[in-house]
């Protein structure tokens, strides 16, 4: 070890540290690099929706939800919405609990990292991995299962805003939930449990209109139901709207609920986010 050459910077001429956006951009690159090097994460994020599609298509392959709409096409909507929830809410919630346990967040606190920069890094990583995940899913759906994909720009616009709002809501709620789950171990069991329950009540595994009324009312409080319904409006023919409990796709309501969850998530995060587990 040679003599350290680090000289303290002169406080008078020391420039201000970079802002949240600059650090946030650097963190997106870091998060993507860490994601890409975690092969388990990569395989799970990109293959899980495809495996779900494969199972649904093999079990219900020849059945139809309504005339001209196969089960696989109906459930593609739910799988896309679930995929978004997994790459955002579940992956973020578990990752933060692990980072906190490992002391990664403690280092960020020591550096005076703006929490916004950390959130930007997570959101950027979630959006990019979600886009790749959906691209893989839709490619398999179209090429292997011949599920018709939309051809008009309007439906793709709907797809885009539902993906964006859903992923953002999932990210902030993932950050929010990490404040309450405690250790990485309990996060690893608790957060997927929440996700599975939401999948059951939100019409991912079942035809939503056939679920009991009570379940539907519970599901309507959470984002996944609205993401799934929004995705149905993208992938199902127009006529299918009549089969929805509300008789329409309810786009304004969907946007409002997802935006509300983003705001609720931001407020909860701002009040509860901690770099360390033990307060003090």
């Amino acid at each position: 070890m040679t003599t350290a050459t680090t000289r303290p910077a002169d406080p008078g001429t020391r420039p201000a540290p970079p802002g949240a956006v600059t650090i946030g951009r650097a963190r997106i690159g870091l998060e993507l690099r860490l994601f890409a090097r975690d092969s388990g994460q990569v395989v799970f994020s990109f293959a899980y929706p495809v495996v779900m599609l494969l199972i649904f298509a093999s079990v219900f392959g020849d059945q139809e939800v309504s005339p001209g709409v196969g089960f696989d096409r109906y459930f593609l909507a739910g799988i896309a919405a679930t995929g978004i929830m997994l790459t955002s809410f579940q992956a973020v919630g578990i990752a933060i609990a692990e980072e906190r346990d490992r002391g990664d967040l403690g280092r960020l606190q020591v550096l005076g990292t703006p929490p916004a920069a950390y959130a930007i890094g997570k959101a950027g990583q979630v959006l990019l991995t979600t886009v790749v995940q959906l691209a893989v899913l839709l490619t398999v759906a179209a090429l292997v299962y011949d599920i018709p994909l939309p051809t008009d720009a309007g439906r793709w616009l709907t797809f885009a805003w539902i993906t964006l709002l859903g992923a953002l809501a999932g990210t902030v709620l993932g950050i929010a939930v990490s404040a309450f789950v405690g250790s990485a171990r309990s996060a690893g069991t608790g957060i997927p449990a929440i996700a599975v329950v939401l999948q059951f009540v939100s019409g991912v595994f079942f035809v939503y209109s056939e679920l009991p009324e009570v379940m539907r009312q519970v599901a309507a409080l959470f984002p996944l139901k609205w993401m799934t319904q929004g995705m149905r409006s993208v992938f199902l023919p127009d006529g299918a709207a009549a089969a929805e409990p509300a008789g329409s796709w309810e786009h304004p309501m969907t946007a409002a609920v997802l935006a509300a969850w983003v705001i609720i998530g931001v407020v909860v995060v701002a009040r509860t986010f901690r770099w360390r587990r033990s307060g003090g």
């Binding site: 860490l34 490992r102 002391g103 550096l111 005076g112």
Partner: peptide, 20 residues
């Protein structure tokens, strides 16, 4: 943050992401 930038802390963990 300006103040924090003038202070260095070496704790008992790297917290830098093991895969880097």
């Amino acid at each position: 943050r300006r103040w924090r930038d003038r202070v260095g802390v070496v704790g008992q963990t790297t917290g830098a992401g093991d895969a880097l």
